[in-house]
Amino acid sequence: MSGSDQGRGPDVLEVQDRARFEQLVLPHLDAAFNLARWLLRNRADSEDVAQEAMLRACRFFRGFHGGDARAWLLQIVRNTCYTWLEKNRPVELMSEFDEELHQQPSVSPETLAIAGDNRERLTRALETLPPRFREVLVLREFEGCSYKEIASITAIPIGTVMSALARARQRLQRALTHSSPQEATREL
């Protein structure tokens, strides 16, 4: 109501849009935070970035004409995270995504079950993966997204979601069954 609002006029929500926003987008705040937390690996940064992403979602909300609100929001969250990473931790984004899928000796389900039951180890293993592997795993396993949703959120062609997940899971298995994450990275 003061001059401080100048320039924000066209960006903000009408009253009726606000109600729709609360109904459609706000219930996915947990999903937004969870994705940011796993992309940035740090709660404090994730909180800031998720907040910024919600603000952006507010601004773009007039351009949202129904459909999958969660995928729409997560796409914005992801973009906001990558912009933040480019600015603050560019090195992390330099890892190669299109690595070949190596034939490797199968790890037994029992070995994996034991390693996977250790929460700390699982967290560390996930965090050693490059962000582009990590995000498909988080979207699929934590968020339960379909391949179609994953494609629209991450902007990878739907035909390659399956192989992206295959590579991500292979990397996770490797990180999990090696004695330390350092070793796992060295071997790559």
């Binding site: 705040l29 947990d30 937004a32 935070f33 969870n34 937390r37 796993w38 709660r43 994730s46 909180e47 998720a50 907040q51 199968s106 790890v107 037994s108 389900p109 029992e110 994996l112 079950a113 390693a115 996977g116 039951d117 929460r119 699982l122 967290t123 996930l126 795993l137 396993e141 934590f142 899971r169 996770l172 298995q173 999990l176």
Partner: peptide
């Protein structure tokens, strides 16, 4: 092995809900 990995991930409680402050 993949099934075991999936069930570890889903049982891990690693999903992080938005904090109240956010």
């Amino acid at each position: 092995a993949e099934e075991s990995l999936r069930s570890s991930l889903q049982r891990s409680g690693l999903y992080e809900n938005a904090p109240v402050s956010l």
